[in-house]
Design a protein around this nucleic acid. Structure first.
Length: 497
RNA sequence: GCGCCUCUAGCUCAAUUUGGCAGAGCAACGGACUCUUAAUCCGCAGGUUCUGGGUUCGAGUCCCAGGGGGCGCACCA
């Protein structure tokens, strides 16, 4: 149904396919080098190009093809008296991978072309690449068979090139500030660093369940204790949650920790990284996202969470208010609340429902309640708050900035509070991690930390509203047929332990 | 996980408001054509209408169940 069966395309035997194609040039290089040619002019220069044949127009004793490679496209111009095995060339299928050698010319109609002398089939395409004008629109095919999507639909490759550029730019920028890149475990005996449900897997030789990490935080902090004053990781984390246009269960985070820095230093770092990525991709500090401009010029606006709630809703909230009063004001704004929530959870929920989606930004939202930030240091002056900044762009959280909690006794108390929340039914509570606490007990200097959602940044820079457009292979339900196969394999495996 | 929508040829889509012989363009296959640009023209072929039940003289169309996909809600970045 999704192209699993060959379409019975006729093709040449594969026995004589080359093992290598020496001396190939890219289409874009040939086009730019020979752009000086006038209509009907021949360059005298012979090149070899290779790629997929995406269009073919046979016109009797001559034929025009469009060859596409990684860099672009170039026309192939075949003539019966010039081109080897001309009839076979005319029988090529759309999608076949070929190499062609010939002189670079510009046709009478003005199209720069390789006048094909020799050519060879490198790989026949046994499945089509969709409608040559409309491409492939079925989302199921686009994501399950990304290789088809990449040829059939414009813009797909460019988005992933932007992604690559963003990641390499981040590495350059972090390196320029003296940050050391590290890799920490993906498989962990305990999970931590965020409020999320983990994926569980089994480590056979240890006879123990392990977890896929839900954040990078705890190990990176231990490296700060170990003396790496500026440390970061760009890595995949896994959260056992639903799939939606904005969420994928595995996604890529940048986390960085900077000794001797606080949350405002880290907010500055986010501005630096984000603006650097914006300029690397677009060459200027402003972009258009979903039809509206975003200007990343520094510095960004800073405002507290409670100020922004009042600005948006006209309703004043404060942690000093009684929970009953906060609950009443929340419900007055149409925000549904749970009975067991404390002041911090109530205030944060009102913010997330009424204010955050309407913040276009970029804006740094400052000062969250302690109870919703179990790994963050208490505010130096404001009772009940922590030093946390969330940079918001286009109504979405781009990341988080923290003055990190470094006091082991306070950290232990917060873990205990999380355990109590878990006992009340909160299934995303953090678990107590003695290894991490022991590291803190050896002494962690004042440290600022950030987490930044790389996928979200790429979405902003490519102007897409679905995370699937920036993930090469987004999470999908297994296809029914394959699930049945897997089950039968499982039975065989269990019979032969 | 819950709710709503959707699934027709390899691809993109049709198929009278209210059930009456399943169609087109592209691709493929055969042919014509020495400057095409989604080439054009002629011909041929292509279907378990997602699957399984049901209602009906008759189901792509209506009903039930299952599967895939999309959207919304919930959870989260």
């Amino acid at each position: 149904m999704t192209g699993a069966e060959p379409e019975d395309l006729q093709h040449s035997p594969r026995s004589d396919i080359a093992y290598a194609v020496p001396g190939t040039e890219h289409a874009a290089d040939v086009v730019s080098r020979c752009s000086y040619l006038d209509q009907g002019e021949e360059s005298g220069e012979v090149v070899t190009v290779a790629g997929r044949l995406m269009l073919l127009r046979v016109q009797g004793k001559l034929a025009f093809g469009q060859l596409r490679d990684w860099t672009g496209r170039i026309q192939l111009f075949a003539l019966a008296p010039v081109t080897d095995a001309f009839d076979d060339f005319c029988r090529l299928n759309l999608g076949d991978w070929i190499a062609a050698t010939g002189e670079v010319v510009r046709t009478k109609r003005g199209e720069l072309s390789v006048k094909v002398a020799g050519w060879s089939l490198l790989a026949p395409a046994l499945h089509g690449f969709g409608d040559k004008w409309r491409g492939v629109h079925d989302p199921d095919v686009r994501y399950r068979q990304r290789e088809v999507d990449m040829w059939a639909n414009e813009g797909v490759r460019d988005r992933f090139l932007v992604r690559s550029l963003v990641v390499s730019t981040i590495r350059d920028l972090m390196g320029a500030r003296g940050f050391v890149e590290v890799e920490t475990p993906v498989l962990q005996p305990l999970y931590g660093g965020a409020n999320a449900k983990p994926f569980v897997t089994h480590y056979n030789s240890m006879h123990a369940d392990f977890y896929l990490r839900i954040s990078l935080e705890l190990y990176l902090k231990r490296l700060v204790v170990g003396g790496i004053e500026r440390v970061y990781e760009i890595g995949r984390v896994f959260r056992n949650e639903g799939i939606s246009p904005k969420y994928n269960p595995e996604f890529t985070m940048l986390e960085a920790y900077q000794a001797y820095g606080d949350y405002t230093d880290m907010a500055e770092l986010v501005e630096y990284i984000t603006l650097g990525a914006v300029e690397a991709v677009h060459g200027r500090p402003r972009i258009t996202f979903q039809g509206r401009e975003v200007d990343f010029t520094r510095p960004w606006r800073k405002a507290t969470l409670l100020e922004l709630v009042e600005e948006t809703t006209g309703v004043e909230l404060d942690l000093s208010m009684a929970p009953a009063e906060l609950r009443k004001r929340a419900e007055g704004l149409g925000v549904a609340v749970e009975d067991f929530w404390d002041e911090g959870a109530l205030v944060t929920e009102v913010y997330e429902k009424t204010t955050e989606p309407n913040l276009w930004g970029p804006v740094h939202v400052m000062d969250y309640p302690v109870s919703v930030s179990p790994l963050t240091r208490r505010h130096r002056t404001k009772e009940g708050f922590v030093e946390r900044i969330t940079p918001i762009v286009a109504g979405r959280e781009l990341g988080e900035c923290y003055s990190e909690l470094v006091d082991p006794d306070d950290q232990r108390a917060r873990f205990v509070a999380q355990a109590e929340a878990a006992a009340r039914g909160y299934d995303e509570a953090m678990v107590l991690d003695e290894d991490f606490l022991r590291a803190l007990e050896r002494g962690m200097p004042p440290t600022g930390g950030i987490g930044l959602g790389v996928d979200r940044l790429v979405m902003l820079l490519t102007d897409v509203s679905h995370i699937r457009e920036v993930l090469l292979f987004p999470a999908l339900r297994p296809e029914a047929g394959r699930e049945a196969e897997r089950e039968s394999e499982g039975e065989i495996a269990s019979e032969n332990p």
